[in-house]
Amino acid sequence: MEAELMALAASGASTLVTLMISDAWTQAKDRLAAVLGRTGEEEDVLRELEASRAVLVNALSAGDGARAADVESEWQARLLRLLRVDSSWIGEFQKLSAAPGGTVYNHITGRVQAGLLIQAGRIERSNFHTPEVTCPANSEQTVK
């Protein structure tokens, strides 16, 4: 059971940190504060979430991956403590670990590489436009 609790806490913390750096943070933070502050401490939790987010954003902006990982570790430890004290948190964390509204959030870590990254849940139509090129051998002909 301990391994399952640790995995759930890790998943919850990862989801939390991913939400902190996503466009969904505005909608997610109130929901997270309501769940994590269910004992009447919602405003305190909201302040803690915002403080953690500020540290995380500053760390990522400065390229400080270790500090960013610390933020996730701190939340993982906190979530694990909650799970150990009260098993009713399990259902709450499973809901939190599921991406809201069917949206997928990916947190990418590791080496920095230059290049294009495309993340998509579903692509229905794609239009790729390339500039027209004139053939040097025959200036009358245009290649698309």
Rank of each mutant, 00 (worst) to 15 (best):
M1P: 02
T134L: 07
I90R: 15
R125N: 14
G110E: 10
D23V: 13
L79C: 09
A28E: 10
A114D: 12
N127T: 09
V133T: 14
E72L: 11
L46I: 02
A54V: 00
A7S: 14
D44P: 00
F128M: 09
S73W: 05
Q141L: 13
R47G: 15
Q27G: 14
R67L: 12
A137S: 11
L16S: 01
A114M: 04
A54H: 03
L49F: 04
L116E: 15
S126K: 08
E140L: 06
M1S: 11
E42N: 09
R47D: 15
L60Y: 12
H107D: 02
K95D: 03
R122K: 09
R67F: 08
S87P: 07
T130P: 02
A66C: 04
A98I: 01
T103Q: 12
K95I: 03
D86M: 09
V104F: 06
Q119W: 04
K144S: 12
R84D: 15
E74I: 12
A24Q: 11
E42G: 05
G91V: 00
G40R: 12
E140S: 13
S139D: 14
P131Q: 13
K144R: 15
E2V: 06
G63F: 04
I108V: 08
S87W: 12
Q27T: 10
R111C: 07
V35R: 01
A13F: 13
K144I: 06
Y105E: 02
S139T: 12
R38L: 07
W25C: 01
L83K: 00
A66M: 06
R78A: 08
A13L: 03
S52T: 09
V143E: 10
S126E: 10
L60P: 01
L49E: 09
D44Y: 05
V133C: 08
L16N: 01
R122Y: 12
A68M: 02
F93L: 00
T109K: 14
A51I: 03
S139H: 12
Q113M: 04
V35S: 08
R84M: 13
R31H: 09
A66S: 07
Q113K: 07
A68D: 06
M20I: 01
G63P: 00
A34P: 01
F128H: 13
L83A: 11
D86C: 12
N106D: 10
L80M: 05
K29T: 08
H129I: 11
S126T: 13
R125D: 11
L117M: 08
S87V: 04
L5P: 04
R122V: 12
E132T: 14
Q113I: 05
A77V: 04
R111S: 14
L8G: 08
G115T: 03
A9M: 01
A59E: 00
M1C: 13
S139P: 06
S139Y: 10
T39M: 05
E74D: 08
Y105A: 07
L116V: 12
D44W: 02
E50Y: 08
G40S: 04
A51D: 14
A66I: 00
L56W: 03
T134G: 07
L16R: 00
R67T: 15
G65L: 01
A33G: 13
L56C: 11
L82K: 09
P136C: 13
V112H: 05
L96I: 15
G12S: 11
V112Q: 05
A10L: 00
Q94H: 07
Q113E: 09
